[in-house]
Design a protein around this nucleic acid. Structure first.
Length: 622
DNA sequence: GTAGGGTTAG
């Protein structure tokens, strides 16, 4: 008796019949096995019946294997594919890289008069959704109605989802109001749609009004808040969810942790981490990444590494999260060690890993290492550098003072440099006081995008570095005159588990009078230590034109004053959100840490600073 | 005797 060997337990004898073939297909776990089974079927003269072909197609289009070419080959050899097979192929294409081909199959299906069933439209509309194809959606919508699927909840839900999340929220609303049957999925899609176009109040109305909420409803609303930058609202909603007794799953936890991470709400984040351990949720790579990111951003690399050790599936994203943690702490050497170790265990770095490791090198002054990594991207790893990587390199060279080399790199970039790349060079000009080049770039950037507030601020800061306050104020004034708005500076501080936010010029905090008084006394102490503010007074009189320049520092000073009020000497103050820690702020905070004997932790968009006893760990040389 | 096998939302 002849037989082929698949795996020791899976043998297919010549006598096997269709039923055995099916059970083999069911247990099949690799593409190779599938091909062997098919070869054997051919050899033994077994003709694949409808269900066997269906099984094969299902196997090939599953996201895990995704061998659509092979599925298409099998499909092409079926003389008259039935609805199921068409549906399966449409599903396959809609989930993978060529959603357009789903439309092609649908066309064939119509040509051959193969009937639809209730599965056809959800698959087809998924393709519309990934292509943001509103025109096609409208056409399919017409078919849904014409073919009598207008009251099928799956079909109408899929339509709702495409309209709501592809920029046609009004069409979604119209449909939502008229469909005969609505379920939780319909409501969830509406909430998702409204959060995606920034209509947070309406989204919340829907959320409040819906008859039954499930964990996805809660998560949609929470991640909607996170996407809109409303982190406190996100956290509050998570607490409400707990009170309602809805058990959060990994997605809900990841969204909430991301809110904690943005807010710097380390206490709440720790609570959720403990909760995850307590209820025994497995830390999947996504949850692992947000936990690592949160601890790293809040300053606790040890806890971040502890999480890394606990995650079973150590994917590239997890290693990258750790490397990113070292990067924001200016621990470039360790980042490099982890980058090497990751490859030693057979994990290949991707584009994001390179962005991260280049940032780490840049922030730690590891110029040679960065250059050699950048060069190795294409040569060793077969990854072509993107504009982000060029941006990192300009930043790396620029920070190290190689302005000409950075300029040269920009000139020979294969793609048009964007504002991020120029911004990196401009920042380098500011650091190294290259006023001439800085002014040129600053003006150029404003011409490119006159409505972008940040550009004016950049130019102003260059003039400020040169001590040319008149021009600096002028750049600010120009911005004001053109009606360009800038988001007000914002700082947040975490104290006893509560996050307090301060806006530049803000007066709304209940203890605002004490805070201003505190800052006055801080100012006196600082001046006694010999500190002289570069411009204007310390806290800034916001009415005073000359102080326009330093308005950014207003919010962080309110936060520090508040922190000093609420803590004792020898303890830690956490400024958990801040736009940028500038040179002035650095000097002031170093002094405060010494005079008031506090450890001050400060996080800006890219860095982590720990001020202790008049020093800072970030390693920046001003 | 003609089902079976596969759906939508974070």
């Amino acid at each position: 008796m002849a037989s082929i060997t698949l795996t020791p337990t899976k043998q297919l004898s010549l006598e096997s019949n269709a039923t055995q073939t099916l059970s083999l297909l069911e247990r099949c776990s690799r593409m190779e096995e599938l091909k062997q089974i098919q070869a054997q079927m051919f050899k033994t003269g077994l003709v694949a019946d409808t269900i066997t072909v269906s099984r094969i197609l299902t196997f090939c289009v599953s996201p895990k294997y995704g061998n659509l070419e092979y599925a298409q080959m099998v499909f092409d050899r079926v003389s008259r594919p039935n609805t199921f097979m068409y549906n399966t192929m449409i599903r396959g294409y809609s989930n993978h890289k060529e959603p357009e081909k789903a439309f092609l199959l649908y066309q064939q299906m119509l040509c051959h008069s193969v009937p639809h069933n209730s599965y056809t439209f959800p698959f087809l509309l998924k393709a519309c959704s990934s292509l943001l194809a509103i025109e096609e959606t409208k056409q399919i919508h017409a078919h849904v109605i014409k073919l009598g699927f207008g009251s099928e909840v799956f079909a109408t839900n899929s339509l709702l989802h495409v309209y709501a999340t592809s920029g046609s929220i009004k069409a979604a609303r119209l449909l939502f109001d008229q469909v005969p049957e609505r379920d939780t999925v319909s409501w969830n899609s509406m909430i998702d749609g409204y959060t995606k176009c920034g209509k947070m109040e309406i989204a919340h109305e829907f959320f409040k009004d819906m008859p039954t909420k499930n964990v996805i409803s809660w998560t949609t609303m929470i991640s909607g808040y996170v996407g809109a930058g409303m982190f406190n609202e996100a956290l509050n909603l998570f607490h409400e969810m707990q009170i309602e007794g809805v058990k959060p799953d990994n997605v809900a936890l990841a969204s909430t942790l991301s809110a904690c991470s943005h807010l710097g709400a380390l206490d709440q984040g720790r609570w959720i981490h403990a909760y995850i351990d307590r209820i025994g949720v497995e830390i999947d790579p996504i949850l692992g990444c947000v936990l690592i990111d949160m601890f790293a951003k809040c300053g606790d690399m040890e806890e971040a590494l502890e999480v890394f050790r606990k995650v079973r599936k150590k994917e590239v994203s997890l290693w990258t999260a750790v490397i990113s943690g070292f990067a924001i702490h200016g621990r470039g050497r360790e980042a490099l060690v982890w980058f090497d170790n990751m490859q030693k265990v057979g994990i290949r770095p991707n584009h994001i890993t390179f962005t991260t490791i280049l940032t780490a090198c840049s922030h730690s002054g590891l110029v040679e290492e960065g250059k050699s990594l950048f060069e190795s991207m294409d040569r060793v790893h077969k990854l072509s550098p993107t504009i982000e990587h060029y941006g990192c390199m300009v930043d790396l060279l620029g920070r190290a003072g190689f302005l000409r080399e950075a300029m040269g790199l920009i000139e020979k970039m294969p793609v048009k440099p964007n504002a991020v790349v120029w911004g990196a060079l401009l920042n380098a000009c500011r650091m190294h006081k290259n006023v001439e080049l800085g002014k040129k770039i600053g003006k150029f950037l404003i011409e490119e995008d006159p409505n972008h507030g940040g550009r004016y601020i950049h130019l102003a800061s260059i003039h400020a570095v040169a001590g040319d306050w008149d021009r600096a104020v002028e750049a600010r004034r120009q911005m004001k005159d053109r009606g360009v708005s800038k988001l007000p500076g914002c700082s947040a501080i975490s104290l006893n588990g509560v996050v307090h936010e301060f806006l530049a010029g803000g007066q709304s905090h209940p203890q605002i009078t004490d805070i201003y008084q505190m800052w006055d006394s801080i100012g006196e102490r600082l001046e006694k230590e010999g500190y002289k503010p570069a411009l204007g007074n310390l806290l800034l009189d916001l009415e005073d034109e000359a102080n326009e320049m330093a308005i950014n520092r207003h919010s962080e000073r309110l936060a520090i004053a508040f922190g000093l009020l609420g803590t004792k000497p020898g303890t830690t103050i956490r400024i958990v959100k801040n736009l940028r820690v500038c040179e002035e702020c650095h000097t002031v905070t170093k002094l405060i840490s010494k005079i008031y004997d506090r450890e001050i932790v400060m996080r800006d968009r890219t860095r982590f600073h720990l001020f202790r006893d008049g020093k800072c760990t970030c390693g920046d040389k001003w």
